[in-house]
Nucleic acid binder design. Structure first.
Length: 434
DNA sequence: TCTGGGGTCCTAGGACCC
DNA sequence: TCTGGGGTCCTAGGACCC
């Protein structure tokens, strides 16, 4: 049976989430900022129309904000995460096989449906997600993932499509590819795009006509796969439905303001270790190698100091306390006095699931175990909120490294005290709001 | 004043093995 | 004069994704 895949992707996802709960933002140029209110990571079409590029630092558009031309919001991941899972559960009504590719998009298996029904199914998906979650989405349908991505691109960029494109027909494929810049193809980034340009390959259509073997020789097997997919072959498999089956866990942050003291830097890293180990246990995994990283601000005209250090433990562990014991001496090795630190991170690598590893000759345990104390701590934090119990070294006071989020909206869907209040008489919200 | 935080996969080259 | 061939593992770095 020929594979049929729908790629469903929410439009300007973070912005759309904000609009669901504040309809006064509908029609306005709106941007959502990265952590620390640093740069713009999501834009509505109205903001794009003003020429504000992805990744623009917030300070460059401050004048527009002050003039009331645009709106900005801090990123509210509690809200976006919850809206994402609502979106995904609507998709799961259409097919038993849904691969969540990122917070705002998913591949949906539609193999087996008659060809003449595909467009209608796509339209139903779009309509139901809109009605049940308030999120506008685009749907692209094709015979492999790369073409589904391309179909989705068309759904978003050509209003006449109504946001749904069935690209299973080869004639339509060819027509679309001939007018699509090669840079829009999934897997072609700015670097590869530039190199393709040198060969005179500027559209998806031109890329699709290349010989895969030649592409492999000049570029890579990765791009070769992309070309094969553009030619209709199916090369990128469905990901196994193992949630959280990661190979590494990273917790890193830029700081709200520069950190200068050892103690502050240490406290920030304790925080990252705490969260990384919590994620590790949530996946039922263990690790015996970690990396600590500290960075100064590369954009600042000040002395720079960037350093990494690898920490190792003989037998795999998921015990926060084990890593914390190594953290302070490790940080002492790479910390230098007199620098303005802007970012730090902790990364667990070499994850294993507790079987099939080399045990320490002198260890009492044959298999790694989750210490009871960690299990209890996780249970309490799940029930009473994040970091209800935390390592004392995190500290109790506000620290300079806390994230700046000056334009944060409430956690409408995940915190009782933040739930939206609607005034029936006030007519505050337009009728599209249910 | 002010520029994110995750991830993945692939390749090349060095160290080391017999 | 003349110095192999095949393999693994690890790491760093590059490229991509959202």
């Amino acid at each position: 049976m020929r594979p049929v895949i729908a790629l469903c992707d929410a439009n300007a996802f973070y912005c759309s989430c904000e609009r669901v709960f504040d309809p006064t933002l509908i029609g306005r140029p709106l941007g959502v900022l990265s952590n620390n209110d640093g740069c713009i990571v999501a834009r509505t079409p109205e903001l794009k129309a003003l020429g504000v590029a992805m990744g623009t630092p917030a300070f460059r558009v401050r004048h527009l904000l002050e003039q009331g031309v645009i709106d900005l919001r801090s990123s509210n991941y509690a809200l976006y995460g919850d809206m994402s899972s609502r979106f995904m559960s609507v998709l799961e009504q259409f097919s038993p096989k849904v691969e969540v590719y990122s917070i705002d998009e998913a591949f949906v298996d539609l193999a087996g449906f008659p060809a003449d029904q595909l467009h209608g199914i796509g339209a139903d998906m779009k309509q139901r997600v809109q009605q049940w979650t308030g999120l506008p989405i685009g749907v692209g349908i094709a015979n492999n993932k790369t073409l589904a991505k391309l179909a989705n691109y068309a759904a978003k960029n050509y209003p006449a499509t109504g946001g749904v494109v069935d690209l299973t027909d080869p004639v339509r494929q060819r027509r679309l590819m001939d007018i699509t810049p090669v840079r829009e193809v999934w897997g072609v980034g700015s670097r590869i795009g530039k190199r393709l340009d040198h060969w005179g390959i500027r559209t998806a259509g031109e890329l699709s006509k290349c010989k895969p073997a030649w592409i492999r020789k000049e570029f890579s097997v990765v791009l070769e796969r992309t070309v094969c997919e553009l030619q209709g072959e199916s090369c990128i498999p469905w990901e196994e439905e193992i949630t959280g089956n990661k190979h590494q866990i990273i917790c890193s942050r830029s700081f709200g303001q520069a950190v200068t003291t050892f103690d502050d830097l240490h406290a920030a890293l304790v925080n990252f270790v705490d969260r990384a180990c919590e994620k590790l246990r949530a996946q039922g995994k263990f690790s015996r190698e970690a990396l600590i990283m500290i960075r100064t601000d590369p954009y600042r005209d000040a002395p720079q100091h960037n350093a990494n250090l690898t920490l190792s433990i003989p037998e795999p562990t998921c015990d926060t306390r084990r890593w914390l014991q190594l953290l302070r001496p490790g940080l002492e090795k790479i910390y230098r006095e007199g620098f303005l630190y802007r970012k730090a991170g902790f990364m667990l690598v070499d994850l294993c699931d507790g079987t099939g590893f080399q045990a320490d000759l002198w260890s009492e345990h044959v298999l790694p175990e989750t210490p009871a104390m960690m299990t209890v701590m996780d249970a309490i934090n799940r029930r009473y909120g994040k970091q209800t119990l935390k390592p004392a070294a995190v500290g109790l006071n506000e620290r300079p490294w806390h994230m700046a989020r000056k334009m944060l909206t409430p956690q409408y869907t995940t915190r009782w005290s933040d739930i939206l209040k609607v005034n029936a008489k006030g007519q505050k919200y337009p009728s599209t709001f249910h």
